[in-house]
């Protein structure tokens, strides 16, 4: 299998569409025949990331590179950035507004959960410029 690259633009205004990119990525991996556990780990991590792009980032982009050994994902936004990444990684810490919590998100589990479901996670964030999260899930 050759390296497959996927690119998705994520709207920052339409919460109802959040998850569409994750859904497409999941279906792609399924069609390519990856193990169920790998597909689910990628799906959950990307979905959490996509929700974050909508809630916090004002939208952004998702790029995925798929090889037989590894699925690499980059989620990037030009939102407000994360002032304290270590704090944001703590379970339960959330800056999500009340309207987001009413939709079932904003429990402060997004970033820790992304870490839990991926093998590598790198957060690059600058206040006022945006956040980029690089993820890898290895196919074991």
């Amino acid at each position: 299998m050759e390296l497959l690259s996927l690119h998705y633009d994520v709207s920052g205004t339409d919460f109802t569409c959040a998850g569409e990119a994750s859904s497409k990525i999941k279906r792609n991996l399924k069609e390519l025949g990856f193990p169920t556990s790998v597909i689910r780990n990628v799906a959950i991590a990307v979905y959490e990331g996509e929700i974050n792009l909508v809630i916090h980032g004002g939208g952004g982009v998702i790029d995925v590179e798929i090889s037989p050994e590894c699925i690499s994902i980059v989620l990037a936004d030009q939102g407000p950035g994360i002032p304290d990444v270590a704090l944001a990684m703590q379970e339960g810490y959330s800056t999500a507004p009340d309207n987001v919590r009413q939709l079932g998100f904003g429990a402060g589990m997004g970033l820790p959960n992304i870490k839990k479901y991926t093998d590598e996670m790198i957060i690059e964030s600058e206040v006022g410029k945006g956040t980029t999260i690089k993820l890898k899930v290895f196919v074991k």
């Binding site: 919460f15 959040a18 994750s22 689910r40 998100f105």
Partner: peptide, 17 residues
């Protein structure tokens, strides 16, 4: 089982198989 009604409930179920 959920009392929440928005598309993300279906999306969440989808991601979790």
């Amino acid at each position: 089982l959920s009392g929440l009604v928005n598309p993300q409930v279906v999306r969440t179920a989808e991601m979790m198989d």
